[in-house]
Design a binder for these strands. Structure first.
Lengths: 198, 198
DNA sequence: GCTAAAATGGACCAGCAAGTCCAATCTGGG
DNA sequence: CCCAGATTGGACTTGCTGGTCCATTTTAGC
C-alpha cells in the first residue's frame, strides 16, 4: 500500500465505514463490493487501491473495526466494576445495547463468514475475547479485594463463564429476537458472584 | 414434490446426508451444489427434483437434520438429570462432544448463513432452543423436588442462563479451538444450582 | 508551476455456481 | 406386458461478482 494523503485516508475510511454499515444492515453474504461502492460513492479502483487484498481484506478491516466497538460500547461501565450497583449498571448497559442493536451482530456475522478459516480473523476474535474477559476478571478481583466475593473463586474462570453466557445470549437473540437469554445469563452470573461472599 | 418411490427416497436421503457431511467438513460457504453432486454421485436434475427450492431448500433441510442431532448427541444424559452425578455426566457429555467435533458447529454455520433471513430457518433454531431449555428445566425441577435446589429458583430462567452459557462456550470454541469457556460456563451454571439448596 | 506519486473513473474480463431443460431410462401397479 | 409417472444424465443458460487495467485527474513537495 502506497503512502496516503489526507484525501486518500478519508476515502479509505469512507469505504471502510460504508462497508461496515452495509454489513450491519444486510449481512455479509448480501454485501457485494459493488454495494459498498454505490453506498460510498467510490469506484472499484479506489477500493482495490486501499484494500489490495480485495474483499477479504476489507472484511477483515470491518471485523477489526467492529471488534473495537464491542468494548467501547460497554464503557465506562465495564471499566469500573467496583460495586454491586456498578455491576448492575454494566449488566443494563450490555442488555440495552444488544436490545437496541436488534438481531444483528456484525462481528459474529463477519467472523463466522471468513472467521474460522483465516488466521487473521481468528486473531481478531481471540484478542477481543481475551480483553473482554480480562476486564471482567479485573472487576471480580475488585470485589474480592472489597470482601464481596469469596477470594477462593478464580476470577478468570468466572469471567470466562460470564463471557460465554453473554455470547450465547446474544447468539440466541440473533435467532429469536429476544434478549431473555442474555438477561438470564448475566443475572445468573452476577448472582453466582454475589452468592459466594467471603 | 411428486410421490417418492423407495429408490427416490434413498436418493433424496443420500443428497441430504452428503450435503450435511460436506458442510460439516468445509462449511456452508465452501459447499456448492456441484460439490454435493460429486460427493453423492447424483446429478443436478436429481437435486432439483427432490429439492425444488434449490440450494436454499437443501440448506434448510440440512439445518433441520443437524438440529435434530444436537439433542440426540446429549442423550441419554440430558434426559435424566436427576442427581448431581447425573448432571456431571451430562456436563462431560457436552464438553466431550464439542471437543471431539473440533471447531465446527454445522448448525450455527448453516443458520448464520440463511438463518436470520428466512423465517423457516429461524423456526428451526427457535424450536431447538425451546426443547433444549425445556429439558434442562425439567432437570432443575427434578432436583427441586429432591430438595437439592432452592424451590424459589425459576427453572426456566436457570435453564435459559445455562443454555446461553453453552451456546457462548461453543461459539468461542469455534474461534479459539479451546473448550475452556464451555467448561467454565457449565461448571459455573451447575455450581450456582448446587449453591442454592433448599 | 512543475513533476512524481497518489487518487480516481469505469470499462472490461473471467470464472463460477445456481438454476433450466429435455431426452432417455427405470419402476411399479394393473 | 404396458404405460404413466418417477427418476436420471448432463449439456446449456444466465447472472453475478470479484478482480484487472489503463487512462485521466488531483495532490503536494520543491
Amino acid at each position: 500500500m502506497p503512502a496516503l494523503t489526507r484525501k486518500g485516508a478519508a476515502t479509505r475510511q469512507r469505504i471502510l465505514e460504508g462497508a461496515a454499515a452495509h454489513i450491519r444492515e444486510f449481512g455479509v453474504a448480501a454485501t457485494t463490493l459493488d454495494d459498498v461502492l454505490a453506498a460510498t460513492a467510490t469506484s472499484k479502483s479506489q477500493l482495490f487501491h486501499y484494500f489490495p487484498g480485495g474483499r477479504e481484506e476489507l472484511l477483515l478491516a470491518v471485523a477489526r473495526l467492529e471488534a473495537g466497538r464491542v468494548l467501547e460500547n460497554q464503557q465506562p461501565a465495564l471499566g469500573e466494576l467496583t460495586s454491586w450497583p456498578a455491576w448492575q449498571r454494566w449488566r443494563d448497559t450490555v442488555v440495552d445495547h444488544y436490545r437496541s442493536q436488534g438481531r444483528r451482530c456484525p462481528l459474529n456475522s463477519v467472523t463466522s463468514q471468513l472467521g474460522n478459516r483465516t488466521p487473521a480473523a481468528q486473531a481478531v476474535v481471540i484478542e477481543l475475547v481475551r480483553r473482554w474477559q480480562a476486564e471482567i476478571a479485573t472487576g471480580v478481583r475488585h470485589m474480592q479485594d472489597a470482601g464481596e466475593i469469596d477470594p477462593g473463586l478464580d476470577p478468570d474462570h468466572a469471567a470466562a463463564a460470564l463471557l460465554a453466557g453473554i455470547q450465547g445470549g446474544v447468539l440466541i437473540q440473533m435467532s429469536t429476537g429476544e434478549v431473555t437469554h442474555l438477561e438470564a445469563a448475566l443475572d445468573m452470573g452476577i448472582a453466582h458472584l454475589r452468592g459466594s461472599p467471603a
